[in-house]
Amino acid sequence: MYAQLVETGSKKLKTLEEMSPEERAFQERIDAEIKIEAKNWMPDSYRKTLIRQISQHAHSEIVGMLPEGNWVTRAPTLKRKLQLMAKIQDEAGHGLYLYSAMETLGADRDEEIEKLHSGRAKYSSIFNYPTLNWADMGAVGWLVDGAAIVNQVPLQRTSYGPYARAMVRVCKEESFHQRQGYEILLHMMRHGTEAQKEMVQDAINRLWWPALMMFGPSDEHSPNSAQSMAWKIKRHTNDELRQRFIDQTIPQLNVLGCTVPDPDLKWNEETGHYEFGDIQWEEFNRVIQGHGPCNTERLETRRNAIEIGAWVREAAVAHAHKKQQKQAVA
């Protein structure tokens, strides 16, 4: 998902001739679709870019639990509560797969988490929006996880082996998320009261544009894309993925009987794609720079979880130590 602005440290691609012999061998390996593994030589900038991208991705999974956590105690039935908890546990798992992949590059988990908590590392802008009604749980599953899937499916073929393998696991689990979200909305639209149907439309109205922003800036404002694509970390541009998401989502929207808040949305017979209105990039920039509706609250919750939970980690270490000593005596 969930890595929207990843600095690669280079705005211009080197040609094979300009590369050192090591760099050239590395690029040729990538061009031949051979996966890069942890122990292989890699340019420093490739390593740094991956650490940035994978950590952003992991942070997004972890922060992504918070808007949903808001609804665990408020879910309308036990069935919905169990489903929601299962989904949230998956997000924690996805974060952990990704942190593990990141660690194979020599990054330290605590240091990267500290960067998140001090505001130096980014996470997906989408999680800085509040979840105001129960239909938001449906819309998040359908639209946010749906956008994440479009983003993550190509990442299963990303050039770095541990990242690609983590993505395979993530994608397998993610389709449950999207289907459960859509089913929440469909149930409300087909069996709900008028007020509940309005709730669904309200949730879509608020989350549609932020979901489209998840794919990151448009290609012309995405200076790092070329290098990421050359390294095959990214396999498609932001705009390609955004278009793919819109094209597959609008028919599902029609089944729900809802609309999106975009008067310019229309089917283009010639191109075979939907056309859509302008995205408010000012809003995106504001949110990603830390000034969205919930940025402060999200980071505070994460910091509290680590700080207030410190005694649990200390107790676990003390307990393990005591067990070891007992075993040594016996």
Binding site: Y97, S100, R169, A316, K323
Partner: peptide, 11 residues
């Protein structure tokens, strides 16, 4: 399948 952090093998 991957890795985990823990204080000991049981955990």
């Amino acid at each position: 399948v991957g890795s985990v952090h823990a204080v000991d093998a049981e955990m």
